[in-house]
Every structure is written in structure tokens, then in C-alpha cells.
Design a protein around this nucleic acid. Structure first.
Lengths: 244, 244
DNA sequence: GACCGAGTATGCGTATACAATACCTCGCAT
DNA sequence: ATGCGAGGTATTGTATACGCATACTCGGTC
């Protein structure tokens, strides 16, 4: 697999720098590195994440890696099986449905409040994000586009002012990236090019109801674009196959 | 303090316990112990949770405790400040509002689906839970009542079949317990005695809309019963106090 | 030739040791 | 007497070492 990490190999042979001052930031950076790699599909679902390998790549000990892996596991980006180690989560079809149902409920429900609270600055920032996403899509940088799309939805939720729900939406978007990696069709990214721009328009006009309805269609379109086929690679149902 | 456990384990050559086999279950049990203690208000918001103390009490090393503390921190039941250690989270008024707004959106939104999917077995189980809660309330066991109330709401969400949203509701309920501990009035527990029973009735009748409306009122009532006074013990606003 | 068992190897879970830092207390100076 | 500073203590953060469980492989036997 393609494992060229963005880390650029802290070639420092003396890992004595693992002092304490920047430990927290360091860990945060590592967390984001791995998280981004998963969201951008540079690490594909099912990929194993060995602790020592990660520890060596990032130049920290296994202890820190374990903490990060735990956190990723709680966000359901990686799956932690007791004695098999960590691997990038491979969402099931049921989970995919749950995630999109949840997004439907929360993101649409948030739109009225977002329309009420959105500011000029928010609008320009969202426009900029949408523009960059479109450019990435046009330039064939699918990884960047996926991340930007998720970031757009998360940022949108953040405008509502409800940190709890915004955080939840952020996680749902991360998981959605994973779902796209498994069930998405290559070349057909979830979000259509102009959808996000249209959405900004409704919000800017203060029309929360329109925005909610549009978001609903938007999410439905993404979900519909998935090809949910039960792969069940691990346990093929021989009875069903052979008509037993 | 009492260090018999660790010493005994060290000198014990026989790997009869605590080694590796039941480690996961052990940790799960400890996690639930601490979580329950927080939800039941036996550990009050602001209480410090020292790692060695917990390690000694539960007879495991600090390593395992740290993992559990991290998990609790991610669920926002404990707050982890960089070099000050862990303490039971003291929710702010803003967080309280966010949590109840989120519950309003998700729990009410779930009711129609719950009404559609609820079974006879679910109904009897819920009735039993409501009964036990009422008894606890009548018997003055406030801790038990709080936990049962949270469990009721979480169980209800679980009937929807959406694991993601059910999990989210569970966390919101846990945080609500914390909020009640800080802002709730003694003697007046959030949920009225008969509310849960009434709710079951609507659901049993398959009336999702009624159930949603009732849930909305129910949550509003709980929120209204809180006395949200900005304690801000850490940073009193002198300007406001002295009219500066 | 296939299947089963033993041995090895890999990799995780846990504990302990060490380092760094924040808080608290005591002493000194003003 | 009070405020400030320095040192000690206590507690967390990180790394390393060790033990065990499981998986994979190789050889023997049926």
C-alpha cells in the first residue's frame, strides 16, 4: 500500500528531544496526521496500524501512540480488537445508514439556527472553503476535496453555536469519509460541486427552512450515490451462494 | 497508604489473576465504577481524581487508570488539565444549554422512529425501569433515581435502532446528570414521576408525534427546573460587580 | 498429500522507573 | 506584618522493560 506519510521522517536519530515541553502539541499533531491520513483515504479501511511502526515513524514511544490510537478508536476511526491490534475501521452498511440518518437529523435540524446566527465573516469563510473544495475537485485532488468537504460541513455546524452538536457533526463527517472510502464510487465524490454554494446562498438570505430542505436533499444525494454492497469478505455465506 | 495489592502481585509468580486475560473486563468494570459514581453524584463536580489514589483503590497500576481517565475525558465526564490532573467536570451554563438543546433535537427527533419500532418486550422493560425509578424516588434514593432516569432515556433512544444516535443520547444523558449535580435543586429531581409512564403510553399507541411533543415538554421542564446561576467562582467579573 | 501439533515469533497489555513541572510552604526582606 | 522568592514535595507525563497470548510456520504422522 501507499504509505508515504506526510511526516517526512523526523530523521533526528537522537530521540532525546522527546522532552516534555511540546509533548502535548506533538501528540496533537500526530493525532491529526493520522486522522487526516484516514479521512483523506491515504490510509484505507482495513489497513493495519502497528504500534511500533507508528511509534518509530513519528519518533515517539509506543505509550504515546497507544493514547492516540485509543482516542481514534473512541471516534470510531480505527477499530481496536483486543489482541489483533489497531486497524482503520471498515464501516458496515448498517453503520453507514446510521451515520447518514444521524447527519440528516442533526445537520438539517441545525440549519435554522445557523441561518439565524450566520455573519458576513462566516459567509466569506464558507465561500472560500467551497471555492477551494471546487478547485481541488477540478484539479483531481480527491483527498483534499474529501477533507475540505468534511471541514465545510463541520464548520457549518459550528456556526450554530452549539459546541456539543458541532462536535458530533464533526465526528459524523469523519466517519462519512470512511464510508465514502468503502462504498463510494471512484470519480463520483459525494458532494456535488455547486451544492455547497447554493446552501450558503440560502443561509445568507436567512432562509433556514430552505437551507434545511436543501441540506436534506444534499445528504440524500450523497447517500444515494453510495453503492452499498455487502462485501462480507471475511465470511462469505456459502449457503446463500450455493443455494444450500 | 495501603500497598498490599501491588506488592502481593509483584512477588506472586503464579499468573493467577490480573495478568492479561481479564484485563479488558477489569478495566471495563473500573470504568463503569467511576462513571457510575460520577453519574450518581457520589463524586461531585470539581472533585479531584488522583491517579495513584485510583490505582491503589482498584488495585491496578497507574497506566490502566490513565487509559480510563482519558476515556472519561473524551466523554466529558472528567476534565483533564495538562499538569493538574483529572477532576470531575463542572459543566458551564453554556454547556448545559448546549446539552439540553441537543437532547431536544435528537431525542424528540427519534421518537417517531421509536414509536414505529417499539415492541411489547420493549414496553414492559421500559415500564419496569420507570417503576424502579419511581420507587427509588419515593424511597429517597436520589443517586439511584438519577442513574435510572438517564438509563431510561438512553434505552429509549436505543429502540430507534440507530446505534450512533443512541450512543450520543447516552452521553448526553450522562452529562445531564452532571448538570443536575451542579444546577439542580435538591429534592426536585429533573424528571417528574409520571412523565416517563405517560411517554411509554404514547409510544405504545404508536403515536410518535405525541411522544415527540411530550418529550419536548419533558426536557423543557427539566431544563426549566435548573437554577442556572453563573457561579464563576474562578473569575468573578469585578467590573460587573462594582459597576466599572 | 493433508491435517494436526509443537515451536517460534510477533505484538499487545501492564508495571515500573525516571524526568519535568506545578503547587505549596517557609524564610527573608522591606 | 506583608509580599515576594526560592526550594521542596507531590503528581503527572513519558519511556522502557517484561510477560503473556495469539498467529504463523514447519515438521511429523496418518
Amino acid at each position: 500500500m501507499n504509505q508515504r506519510q506526510t511526516v517526512a521522517e523526523r530523521k533526528a536519530p537522537g530521540p532525546r528531544l522527546g522532552k516534555n515541553g511540546d509533548g502535548a502539541e506533538r501528540h496533537e499533531a500526530i493525532y491529526r496526521s493520522i486522522s487526516d491520513a484516514i479521512i483523506e483515504h491515504r490510509l484505507k479501511p482495513g489497513a493495519r496500524l502497528r504500534e511500533d511502526a507508528l511509534a518509530e515513524v513519528f519518533g515517539v514511544s509506543r505509550t504515546g501512540i497507544r493514547k492516540i490510537l485509543q482516542r481514534l478508536a473512541l471516534e470510531q476511526l480505527v477499530t481496536l480488537t483486543p489482541r489483533r491490534g489497531a486497524s482503520v475501521t471498515r464501516p458496515t452498511a448498517d453503520e453507514a445508514k446510521d451515520v447518514f440518518d444521524a447527519r440528516q437529523m442533526v445537520e438539517c435540524g441545525l440549519m435554522p439556527e445557523v441561518a439565524r446566527r450566520i455573519t458576513e465573516a462566516d459567509v466569506s469563510e464558507l465561500r472560500e472553503m467551497a471555492r477551494r473544495e471546487r478547485e481541488a475537485l477540478k484539479g483531481g485532488e480527491q483527498s483534499a476535496a474529501i477533507k475540505l468537504s468534511a471541514a465545510f460541513h463541520a464548520r457549518l455546524a459550528g456556526i450554530s453555536g452549539n459546541a456539543t452538536l458541532a462536535d458530533f457533526v464533526g465526528r459524523l463527517c469523519s466517519r462519512s469519509s470512511l464510508i465514502l472510502a468503502v462504498y463510494g464510487n471512484a470519480g463520483h465524490l459525494g458532494c456535488e460541486s455547486h451544492d455547497h454554494d447554493d446552501l450558503i446562498g440560502y443561509l445568507e438570505a436567512g432562509n433556514g427552512e430552505r437551507a434545511a430542505a436543501f441540506m436534506s436533499r444534499h445528504l440524500k444525494a450523497i447517500e444515494a450515490s453510495l453503492s452499498i454492497v455487502e462485501e462480507e469478505g471475511e465470511a462469505p455465506d456459502l449457503h446463500e451462494i450455493f443455494g444450500g
